[in-house]
Each structure stands twice: as C-alpha cells, then as structure tokens.
C-alpha cells in the first residue's frame, strides 16, 4: 500500500514539474522564434537587394539558416507561394503563422502583416517594410527576454511546489 502511495506521489510530482518546465520552455521558445524572424528578414533583405532574387527564392534560401519552428512555417508558405502565386497566399500566411503557439497575438500580427506586405511593392518599399519589422521585433525580443528572466524560474518552482502540495493534501 505504501509502495503504491510512493509511486503515485512521484508520478504526480513528475507531472506537475513537467508542466512547469514546459511553460518555462515556451517562454524561451518565443524569444528564439522572434530572433530567428529577424535573421530571416535580414537574409531576405540581402537576397532581394544584392542577389536580386524573387520572393519565393529569397524565402527558400533564407529559411535554410533558421533553427526553430519558423523554418517549417516559412517552408509551408513557400510551397503555397509556388502553387498559388505571391498575391494569393494571405490565408496560407495567417494559418501557418498561427501554428506558432509560443508567440503572443501581437507577435503573430507583426509577422503576418510583414509577410503579407512583402512582394507587393518596389524594392525600396520592401526594404523599408523589412527595416520597420526588424525594429519592432527587436523591441519584442527585449520584452520576451525580460519576461523569460522573470517568469521561467517562477513557473518551474510553482510546478514542483504544486506537486508537493497535491501529494501532501491527498496522499
């Protein structure tokens, strides 16, 4: 009987700690995706301005250097771009970016609006769009970093202590 109680206690503690750690990792993931987005935009800018590549090629070349979930999202957008053309992928951009669950709504809105506006004007305007997006995303990264530093330790600790509380109260 006591053996079963110990096993259940350890299981509850592991589950609650895992939930706390997952929430902490999601904060880290947000910062990583935003940093990758800046890398992506800078590389697209280089591809368009210096290599004079078109948008699908620029996206495909730039996404190869990414490390996060953003790489797959951009890949899906490139596939849809080849199928339907640059002008008709607004739904695809919205749907694919919304799969990035670590990002806040505001982050997603900036990424969606930037990706929708690229490919619809001349080179200089697109350059300006990219520069503006980079400035805004850099501020978001700063905020994400502050939230990560403040909250990730809290989530991990709260996860472990909640598990201990449940064990003490019920077992």
């Amino acid at each position: 009987m006591i053996f079963i109680k110990i096993i259940i206690s350890i299981a509850i503690l592991c589950i609650t700690s895992y939930i706390g750690i997952e929430m902490a990792i999601a904060l880290k993931s947000r910062e990583q995706i935003l940093t990758d987005m800046i890398t992506f935009l800078k590389m697209v800018q280089n591809e368009m301005v210096y290599m004079l590549n078109n948008l699908p090629v620029s996206y495909e070349m730039s996404r190869q250097r990414l490390n996060s979930e953003l790489k797959d999202v951009i890949g899906a957008i490139v596939v849809d771009m080849s199928k339907y053309g640059v002008d008709k992928i607004d739904m695809s951009i919205t749907n694919n970016v919304n799969t990035l669950v670590s990002l806040k709504e505001y982050d997603k809105d900036i990424i969606i609006s930037t990706l929708k506006n690229l490919g619809r004007s001349d080179l200089e305007s697109q350059n300006n769009i990219i520069e503006n997006a980079i400035t805004i995303i850099e501020k978001q990264i700063k905020e994400a970093n502050e939230v990560k530093v403040k909250s990730s330790k809290v989530y991990k600790t709260v996860g472990i202590i909640s598990g201990l509380l449940i064990v003490v109260i019920f077992i």
């Binding site: 709260v158 202590i161 201990l164 509380l165 003490v168």
Partner: peptide, 22 residues
C-alpha cells in the same frame, strides 16, 4: 503533519511569487 506540510509549502510559494513581483 499534513497541516505543517501545507503551511511550509504555501509559505515558500508565497515568497517565490512575492519576489517575482506577483
């Protein structure tokens, strides 16, 4: 023992959340 355990854990949680500004 249960009451003591709950008390200690709640006190620790209280401190952690207060230090985090919550």
């Amino acid at each position: 023992f249960k009451i003591a355990g709950v008390g200690i854990l709640v006190a620790v949680l209280n401190q952690v959340l207060s230090k985090a500004g919550r």
